[in-house]
Simulated assay, not measured.
Amino acid sequence: MTAPVLYLSHGAPPLADDTRWTQQLADWSAAFEKPKNVLMISAHWEEAPISVSPTTRLVPLTYDFWGFPQKYYEVEYAAPLAPELADSVTGLLGGRGLEVHRDETRGLDHGAYVPLVEMYPDADVPVLQMSMPTLDPATLFEIGRTLAPLRDEGTLIVGSGFTTHNLRWFNPAAGADAPPPTPSAEFDHWAAETVAAGDIDSLIQMLDRAPAAHEAHPRTEHWAPLYLALGAADASGASTVESTIDGFWFGLSKRSWQFG
C-alpha cells in the first residue's frame, strides 16, 4: 500500500461542532484505505532539533488554546503509539544528518487531534507527531522529500495547518458561513490554482508571489506544513492532486488537498 499525502486545514477546537466540516473530514478518510499509521506535522509544534511525540507511554493531549468552554479541554484521543514509525523517521532523517529528539512528555496538540477525531474516531490508527524545526519553505520541502519512503510502508503523512490564517478576520458574530474577506478569497483562489498546477517554485515563494500573502499569513506557521506534504508527494512521484475540501469558516479558507 502506498498511502497518499494530505494537507488539511484543521480548524480550532469548535470544528467539532460544525457538522458539515466534520462530515467532510469523515468522508475524506473513508475514501482511501486506512493507513498503517499517521505521521502528523502540525502548525502548532515548532521545535529544533526535530522532535517526535511519545513512543513509550500514552500522555494527555496538549490543549494548546485558551479561553474556550470547558468541554474542549475534556476531549480525549488515545491513539496507539507508533514507535516503529519513530524509528523509521529517525533513520531517514538521520541519513541526512538531521537529529531527531524523542519528547516523551508532549501529547498531540489540537492541530493533530482535532482533525483525527473526525477522520479516525475510534482512535485505532497509531499516530506520531513531528515538530517543524524551521518555517523555511525549501528546508521543509526537502524534509518532506526525505520522508517520502514512509508512504510505501503505509504511513499517511499529514500536514495540518490552515490555508488562510489571519485571526483578525475571525468574527463569531458574523457566523461560520459569512462571506470571507477579499484577501482571504484572493489567496485561496491563488492557492487552489497554484497547487493544482504543481508550481512548486511559486508555492515556495508564496510571500512574494501570492496575492494578499502577508494578510492571509501574518506568520507562516499554518502554511508551512504544506511544504512537507509537497516534498513527500514530489519525491514519491505522486501524479495526482485533488482539492478535497474547500469553502470558508469564519472567513478563513479551509481548503485541503490530497496528493497521490
Results as ranks from 00 to 15, higher is better:
residue 61 L to N: 02
residue 147 L to I: 06
residue 236 S to L: 00
residue 118 E to P: 07
residue 48 A to N: 14
residue 151 R to F: 00
residue 16 A to T: 05
residue 20 R to S: 01
residue 175 G to M: 06
residue 54 P to W: 00
residue 42 S to V: 01
residue 260 G to M: 11
residue 16 A to K: 05
residue 55 T to E: 14
residue 207 L to P: 03
residue 7 Y to G: 09
residue 1 M to R: 12
residue 203 L to W: 13
residue 185 A to R: 02
residue 256 S to H: 00
residue 171 N to L: 08
residue 97 G to F: 00
residue 30 A to W: 09
residue 246 D to F: 04
residue 122 D to M: 12
residue 160 S to D: 05
residue 116 L to T: 01
residue 172 P to E: 13
residue 221 E to G: 02
residue 210 A to Y: 04
residue 83 P to L: 02
residue 253 S to P: 13
residue 176 A to K: 14
residue 141 F to T: 12
residue 69 P to F: 05
residue 231 G to Q: 09
residue 255 R to I: 08
residue 58 L to Q: 13
residue 166 N to W: 06
residue 45 W to N: 08
residue 229 A to K: 07
residue 81 L to P: 03
residue 84 E to L: 07
residue 31 A to N: 14
residue 102 R to C: 01
residue 159 G to Y: 01
residue 115 P to Y: 04
residue 15 L to D: 10
residue 75 V to N: 03
residue 115 P to D: 08
residue 256 S to D: 01
residue 195 V to E: 09
residue 127 V to L: 04
residue 14 P to E: 12
residue 19 T to A: 11
residue 209 R to G: 06
residue 120 Y to Q: 03
residue 219 R to V: 13
residue 256 S to E: 03
residue 48 A to M: 03
residue 149 P to V: 09
residue 210 A to L: 11
residue 243 S to G: 14
residue 36 K to C: 09
residue 19 T to H: 11
residue 228 L to Q: 07
residue 236 S to Q: 03
residue 237 G to W: 05
residue 14 P to A: 02
residue 242 E to F: 00
residue 11 G to H: 07
residue 152 D to V: 03
residue 42 S to H: 06
residue 143 I to Q: 09
residue 129 Q to T: 15
residue 88 S to H: 14
residue 137 P to N: 08
residue 211 P to H: 00
residue 11 G to F: 04
residue 42 S to L: 01
residue 159 G to V: 01
residue 53 S to I: 10
residue 18 D to A: 04
residue 59 V to A: 08
residue 206 M to D: 14
residue 181 P to S: 11
residue 124 D to E: 07
residue 80 P to C: 06
residue 89 V to F: 06
residue 193 E to C: 05
residue 30 A to G: 15
residue 26 A to Y: 09
residue 226 L to I: 03
residue 157 I to L: 15
residue 37 N to A: 15
residue 105 T to Y: 07
residue 47 E to H: 12
residue 32 F to M: 07
residue 205 Q to K: 12
residue 203 L to S: 12
residue 247 G to A: 10
residue 212 A to I: 00
residue 150 L to G: 14
residue 45 W to T: 10
residue 108 L to G: 11
residue 118 E to H: 14
residue 186 E to V: 06
residue 5 V to G: 12
residue 214 H to F: 07
residue 179 P to W: 05
residue 249 W to L: 05
residue 112 A to N: 01
residue 18 D to H: 11
residue 224 A to W: 06
residue 170 F to G: 04
residue 143 I to P: 10
residue 240 T to L: 03
residue 208 D to I: 01
residue 43 A to Y: 08
residue 179 P to L: 06
residue 168 R to M: 04
residue 76 E to N: 00
residue 254 K to D: 00
residue 185 A to I: 01
residue 2 T to A: 01
residue 248 F to V: 05
residue 247 G to I: 08
residue 144 G to I: 03
residue 239 S to E: 15
residue 152 D to L: 05
residue 257 W to V: 03
residue 120 Y to I: 02
residue 95 G to Y: 00
residue 91 G to I: 02
residue 169 W to F: 10
residue 214 H to S: 14
residue 2 T to S: 14
residue 161 G to T: 09
residue 176 A to P: 15
residue 223 W to E: 10
residue 85 L to P: 02
residue 116 L to S: 12
residue 12 A to E: 02
residue 137 P to V: 11
residue 78 A to E: 11
residue 14 P to R: 04
